[in-house]
């Protein structure tokens, strides 16, 4: 028995020494990235980067429960003790919050020169790529499809629509964007009318899409990848880009964003990773993956379910203003949801 105990001790000591040796050193070819894009989509891209550059990627991914903000909050917690080099966010608002908190460093990648300026921070603190559009997913039994976000408050659809909890994720961003383009008064009135029109609340965009696919509701505002996925699974749904009319505000676009972290331990490798993520090649991969994201570089090939970015009427917003508004309306939204 002593022999077994000694064997366990020896094994453990060997593991401890090996693990100590595997702790990264500054001179090693590594880059640390915090990722809020779903791991299932982002990890293959990071693996390809490793293969092509020989730089090891150490990543921290978000869980569903942290609602894509866990890694951002880890960055805030580590402001005075930065561990990450790069932040890959799945939308621009959190990147803007990090910029405002002094956690980002400017870096203008040459790979981003063809990306429209509306999707880039003017001071170079973050750059957008591969976007989702906020679209309607509509059940096929509905003959006349809703065409504008105002359908939510149209009595014709009373009790027939669903929206994800506006306290989380891209729904919060879109509501904040509406506040910036409509003004507080009109936006708050819209939110009140949502309640009056018996709009149901779901826990996530994915759940909303499932409800519509199952025929429990007629339509919902979701991310384009949620709609494309249900359609690829053969569910009876159609994707509609809302507010495309001349006098309508356009479709809210949510690009992924990437930023360099201030005080990054490996800045040179970080810049290489940022260049890689912003390249047309990465955008093509993300367009054909299950996340079906819309490339922001012109002329990148896309799957048939998607429209190219220049064929969509895009909601013109200032993402910095949206980020500020999002913080401002937190209390209103909490109150609205009854928390």
């Amino acid at each position: 028995m002593k022999k077994i105990l000694y064997a366990i001790l020896a094994l453990t000591a060997a593991i401890a020494i090996w693990q100590m040796d595997s702790v990264p050193k500054l001179s090693q070819k590594i880059v640390v990235v915090y990722v809020s894009e779903d791991q299932v989509f982002s990890e293959p891209v990071l693996k390809d980067f490793e293969k092509e550059t020989g730089i090891t990627v150490k990543a921290v991914y978000d869980t569903e429960e942290s609602k894509s903000t866990g890694s951002m909050n880890r960055l805030i917690a580590e402001k005075n003790n930065p561990q990450a080099d790069v932040y890959w966010a799945n939308e621009p608002i959190r990147a803007e919050v990090l910029k405002q908190r002094g956690i980002a460093a400017p870096y203008a990648s040459l790979e981003a020169r063809d990306i429209p300026s509306v999707f880039k921070d003017p001071e170079g603190y973050w750059t957008g790529f591969s976007a989702r559009a906020r679209v309607f997913v509509v059940n096929d039994r509905v003959k006349e499809k809703p065409k504008t976000i105002l359908a939510y408050i149209d009595p014709r659809w009373k009790g027939k629509s669903v929206i994800a909890n506006p306290l989380f994720g891209t729904t919060t961003s879109e509501i904040a964007a509406l506040f910036t383009i409509w003004g507080d008064e009109r936006a708050k009135a819209f939110m009140e009318k949502l309640k009056q029109n018996d709009v149901a609340l779901s826990t996530s965009n994915g759940e909303s899409a499932d409800f519509v696919a199952a025929g429990q509701y007629d339509f919902s505002l979701v991310d384009s990848d949620d709609a494309v996925n249900r359609s690829r699974q053969g569910k009876p749904v159609t994707m509609v880009y809302p507010d495309q009319g001349a006098k309508e505000p356009g479709c809210f676009i949510v690009p992924n964003t990437v930023m360099l972290i201030k005080g990054a331990p490996h800045p040179e490798h970080a810049k290489k990773l940022i260049d890689y993520l912003l390249s047309p090649k990465t955008e093509r991969k993300l367009a054909f993956a299950d996340c079906a994201q819309i490339p922001l570089h012109p002329s990148v090939q896309i799957p048939p379910e998607l429209k190219p970015i220049d064929a969509i009427k895009v909601m013109e917003v200032d993402y910095a203003a949206v980020a500020k508004k999002m913080v401002e309306i937190q209390a209103f939204l909490k109150n609205w949801t009854g928390l």
Partner: peptide
């Protein structure tokens, strides 16, 4: 968990977001 040192239960949890 530090970057790059996640365990299997954590990896499953993060892959659950949109994983098949």
């Amino acid at each position: 968990y530090p970057p790059g040192y996640e365990t299997l239960p954590v990896r499953i949890y993060t892959l659950m977001a949109n994983g098949s």
